[in-house]
Amino acid sequence: MARSRPIEPPATPLSGGELSLRVRRASDLDAIVAASHDPESRRWLDDEPMDDEARRTSLARADAAWASGRAAPLVIADATTDEPVGIINLQFRDDAVATVAYSVFPGHRGRGVAPRAVRLLVGWALAELRLREVVLEADEGNTASIRVAEKCGFHRVGSRTEPGGHGVPRTVVVFGFGGPGPAPA
């Protein structure tokens, strides 16, 4: 069952220390498009790299995701410069459960961006959207994403095998963080 109502983007950016989470802007698109072609990002993502059409429709698709209640796409930005350093998204399974997905842009990896962004988003999702659970899924070989889940207080709930690229199966590790309660530590 899909989410049954639209989601209002945060009126002001979600702030936490050196990072903020905010809605997408046209000025973010160069960085988002470039990151969609990054080989390390491509290794873990199912989405195709953005072409000219995807770039042209990116903001409208993000707006439609909020309006439909399917997803809550945000940009991870440097709190001082407002430079985009990654993207993060809640993808709703229903009114109570969403999956968090994120990508940190190449020049900003290894600085703790992903755990801080996930904590901010999960805290907002549990407190403001009243979600019961946030799920984080990572390929078993993606040790960086597994560490993010662990650092943020997610607990492993299982794994599954699914088709991977070039017909090679892959194992996805599934983590959960439930509320109500405090945001991830």
Rank of each mutant, 00 (worst) to 15 (best):
R116K: 12
S145E: 08
W124Q: 02
S159V: 14
V135N: 09
A138W: 12
L129R: 09
A127P: 01
A77I: 11
R119A: 00
I76C: 14
A138S: 06
G165S: 11
V134I: 15
A127H: 11
G164A: 13
W124S: 01
P49K: 04
T81W: 08
L74C: 05
E128R: 04
E140F: 15
A96V: 02
L131M: 04
T81K: 12
V118A: 12
A60I: 02
A138E: 02
Q91Y: 03
R61M: 14
E53A: 02
R111H: 13
A54G: 03
D52I: 00
M50N: 03
I76Q: 11
R93W: 15
I146D: 14
Q91D: 09
A101H: 05
A64C: 07
F154I: 13
F154W: 13
Y102N: 00
V75Y: 08
V104W: 15
D78L: 11
E162M: 09
L129Q: 10
A138I: 08
E83L: 14
R160N: 08
S145L: 15
T81G: 11
D94Q: 06
D63W: 01
G86K: 11
A60L: 02
A79M: 12
W124M: 00
A54N: 09
H155L: 12
G153K: 11
R116V: 02
A65N: 01
A71Q: 03
E162K: 15
T81Y: 01
I146H: 03
D82R: 12
R93F: 08
F92T: 05
V134Y: 07
